[in-house]
Design a protein around this nucleic acid. Structure first.
Lengths: 156, 156
DNA sequence: GGCAAGTCCGACCAATTCAGTCTTATTATA
DNA sequence: TATAATAAGACTGAATTGGTCGGACTTGCC
């Protein structure tokens, strides 16, 4: 469809958790998973991936765990998502070496590439630090308002 | 991951094709599918869906086929995508009645909701008419600039 | 120094879900 | 009557989700 994978979702949760516990001890996968009621094994896998990609650093040993590798202001949502799910591409056509078999005939590739770039721009603008800010307005109120799903927000 | 479904992809291709053949006869699913080397049955299903959602109009009979329901400038990419795949929601949490079981504990819901809105904004800005234009025309470049729509750039 | 506990790491595996495809039958129009 | 849209269902395969196990590493305690 057009959704983040659960792994990417968990990755964002984990990274945000680490951002909020920077000063303290390193957080273990177990600790984070239990805090949010998430599958421990999957969260562990996500954190391993994030460590391999350099988003977080792992510390072995009995007091080990994970910590953010950089400042929360330096890590974007795109960093986390693409670390887990690989490069963000809205279509299979729009790869770096675009090679769907109907390349010449496919006429929507170029416009979609631009859309893809815009989305990358959006995702890279949002940092973990921003996501950790205290939302002074209750989220539920906004959500219970008029449905936004099918609507195209009065552009122009 | 974060990809359009093949159906949505085909939908965009079909709608663009219809936009470029407005003046002429109605195009059958068979004709469009063969032109782009696409599975005929899937393309038919996509067009059926688009017809049901009012994006295109179907004409029965031997000279039948599909035609755009509106002006190409009035149809956005979001219209096509959400007609086929349903509402665009980047996470399962961010629904209209947000009900993932860890709602209170889940801390990334609100930031992601804003990201979702930004993406909706991007998709709704792109019209079929723009997609049919010359690729050199930088119709979308403006979007890569400063974020609009729900962004929290003005952080504190 | 040596041992045990707690943690990360990597690979392999199982169940579920979902997208994509095909099939069949029906309806409407020229 | 022939053509093309419409509709509903079954099937297939891949991706996602989630788990298990054995290994390696670091720390704390004896």
């Amino acid at each position: 469809m057009f959704k983040l994978s659960k792994k990417a979702d968990y990755g964002l949760i984990a990274v945000k958790h680490l951002a909020m516990h920077r000063q303290e001890h390193a957080c273990s996968a177990n600790e984070i998973a239990e805090e949010y009621g998430i599958s421990v094994t999957l969260m562990a896998k996500v954190l391993q991936r994030l460590a391999r990609e350099g988003v977080v650093v792992a510390k072995h040993g009995s007091t080990g765990g994970y910590q953010l590798a950089k400042d929360p202001g330096q890590v974007s949502a795109l960093d986390v998502i693409s670390a887990i799910d690989g490069p963000v591409l809205i279509t299979s056509c729009v790869t770096s070496h675009g090679n769907c078999e109907t390349t010449e005939r496919c006429s929507v590739r170029e416009p979609l590439r631009k859309v893809n770039e815009s989305i990358l721009g959006v995702l890279s603008t949002v940092t973990i630090a921003q996501m950790s800010e205290d939302p002074n307005e209750p989220a539920l109120v906004a959500l219970s308002g008029p449905m936004r799903s099918g609507s195209h927000m009065s552009s122009s």
